[in-house]
Design a protein around this nucleic acid. Structure first.
Lengths: 102, 102
DNA sequence: TAGCTAATTAGCTGATTAGGAGAATAAAAA
DNA sequence: TTTTTATTCTCCTAATCAGCTAATTAGCTA
């Protein structure tokens, strides 16, 4: 699977998007991550696997904790892909376009 | 399923992204759309169904043809979602941020 | 060492998906 | 009316996914 497909697939789930939103505030352990969801830990762990497969999340090791961190590179790639279509929704996209070229 | 999940799911396939890229150049019939792929027509038709379910593509009726058209609204929503994370990949995002607020 | 906590793995179920083949529908053309 | 063209529908298989429970690994602590 190519990177873009991995990324979009990972983003196509509300739980995984919520996980990313949580990680945007800083590093979190898997238990802390699972807490707000009505999901068992293995389920959250699997969602994390999907996010890691897409390189959207990385995990370090600290004692028995494995804190997760947001990795922005694939999001940037996805954003760039979507940006290519902005002409279709933004009539006055020229100013934005001009900006982005710089 | 929520709109964002539908959108990202639809984008998580190279064939479907290629279909969108083709539609960005203008309206196309299903046959023309299928031509560059090594896929049977019903398969392409199914991919179109996924794109339509996400409201990324609409179909009109002209004689026995059903030309497809790109619908940008869900792409805009997806772009806005991803943009919220730009701070993580763009160190100098302040100028962009300033721009987008306007 | 034993016991505790954090997290993952294995294995299950039910639902969905991507691909195919072939039949069916709908409109145009002969 | 028959034929051709465009597209979809129905059914099939193999693979994947989201959720669960139970068991396992890894590291800390007493």
């Amino acid at each position: 699977m190519d990177q873009l497909s991995l990324t979009f697939h990972a983003l196509a789930d509300p739980t995984r998007r919520a996980i990313l939103a949580r990680l945007a505030q800083g590093e979190v352990t898997v238990n802390e991550l699972a807490e707000p969801f009505e999901l068992r830990l293995p389920t959250v762990s699997k969602h994390l696997k999907v996010l890691q497969r897409a390189s959207l999340v990385s995990q370090t090791r600290r004692a028995q904790w494995r804190p997760c961190r947001l990795e922005p590179a694939p999001l940037k790639e996805a954003a760039e892909w979507v940006w290519d279509y902005r002409a279709f929704w933004d009539e006055s996209f020229d100013r934005l376009d001009e900006f982005l070229i710089r």
